[in-house]
Write a protein that binds this DNA or RNA. Structure first.
Lengths: 238, 238
DNA sequence: CAGTGGTCTAGACCACCGA
DNA sequence: CGGTGGTCTAGACCACTGG
């Protein structure tokens, strides 16, 4: 019998092996990797296993694959870094902190031009409007200014937003199918400053989020965070 | 012969089918999906195919899977939205616009306490320091304030940053293995305001990025963007 | 314990690319 | 055209979960 490679080389090991050759510079950016069938020889496993490993490395942005051509070490952009914007309640709870919600206003309103456009409704349509402040251990970290489409969440106004976040309520009503988010820096106006307990003219991180459910806009939210108390954090690693 | 299902149901169709039942509310959040082996019966295909389809749906955040238990419609968080922070040159080029870089300063410096800590170097170590402004069609959209570890990019200072971005140069030298990013809102000080051609006290979006290569910090950058001229945009769809 | 998802094998055919 | 990745089959054993 010839000597055999270690009895098992699961796709984890294949990934680790390739990852290392990239990380230590052995395989330079742009360089072509061995073909799947060659790697099958090297690792002594089925092609599906190699394929699976390469597919995951592609998902992670480490390599690029082109059908009919081959697999290549990614040229730039292993720094395709990712920032997740999370639900405020989960985020606070995960830090083991106390989440308290302060309700500023809850109202039925006629949509103005701007709100109507964002929600794809006619101007003057009835919309729900809530304004809340979320506190983490007593410190204001988010001002939530949200408009909701009554058609998609009829029972919305009856809920107690000191107990459950609007996001949760919306999700119960309508499974969402689409979302857009925009992150910007803005200056706090007097009212926002008062709500968040920061000086007027402070820098705020504004996350504008629009959610779509079954083709209709379910909700449009503007989430304001004090620049000094809130950060979006992303981490990436090979 | 009994009637047969349509001759081929690739994993795309399995995904589409499940996706729709979730989107139209037929399968509610938290509900248990049929097991892989049951779906094999329903779709008349191999288990690998079903498995692959479910795996992708999990990647997209639509379902959750627990070994030994089953697959479930995700409870919240199809809105685990994702923001990518991209290379400024690519971003501008992709919009078909002109990218011009203005070099404010290029210098060897002794690291102060703060920079030294961020780069895991001793205070007083020599570091490279560049300050650039990136213009899109003549409008300033990013002030790049970057420190670089000389050990990982010895030829850095010789480069012409009006022709190639520091990110590119760094990537040539050392394949990066790790990165952190933090996004905050800050107020423009006088110098930043001048560089970006905005009023002092304007809101800026600050992206702080630290990249690690082979265990050492390669570079620390602070990227300032006028709040009114720059946005991070994310889109998600079922 | 039976049932679940996780992984792997050893084939196969296809669509695509480049010379 | 030959070589590439993309996908699929029909099995198999494993690790984990829950009652």
């Amino acid at each position: 019998m010839t000597t055999r490679a270690p009895r098992r080389l699961p796709s984890k090991d294949i990934k680790a092996s390739i990852r290392q050759r990239i990380a230590d510079g052995g395989w330079q950016p742009g360089m072509k990797l061995p073909s799947e069938r060659e790697l099958v020889q090297q690792f002594g496993c089925a092609r599906m296993t190699v394929h699976h490993a390469l597919r995951e490395l592609e998902d992670e942005g480490l390599i690029e694959r082109r059908q009919g051509s081959g697999s290549y070490v990614a040229r730039l952009h292993p720094i395709s870094n990712v920032l997740r914007v999370r639900d405020i309640h989960e985020e606070i709870a995960e830090r083991g902190h106390l989440h308290v919600t302060r309700v500023l206003s809850v109202a039925r309103e006629k949509a103005g031009a701007e709100v109507a456009a964002a929600m794809r409704l006619r101007k003057g349509s009835t919309v729900f409007h809530v304004r809340l402040v979320h506190l983490e251990n007593g410190v204001a970290i988010q001002l939530e200014d949200r408009h909701v489409n009554p058609a998609l969440a009829p029972g919305f106004m009856a809920r107690d937003f000191t107990q459950v976040t609007p996001s949760h309520v919306l999700f119960e009503h309508a499974p969402l199918t689409e979302a857009e988010q925009v992150v910007e820096a803005v200056l706090a106006d007097a009212e926002q400053a008062r709500a968040l307990e920061v000086p007027a003219g402070s820098a705020l991180l504004r996350v504008s989020r629009r959610t779509v459910s079954q083709g209709a806009v379910a909700s449009v939210a503007r989430l304001y965070h004090p620049g000094t108390r809130y950060r979006l954090i992303g981490h990436f690693s090979v």
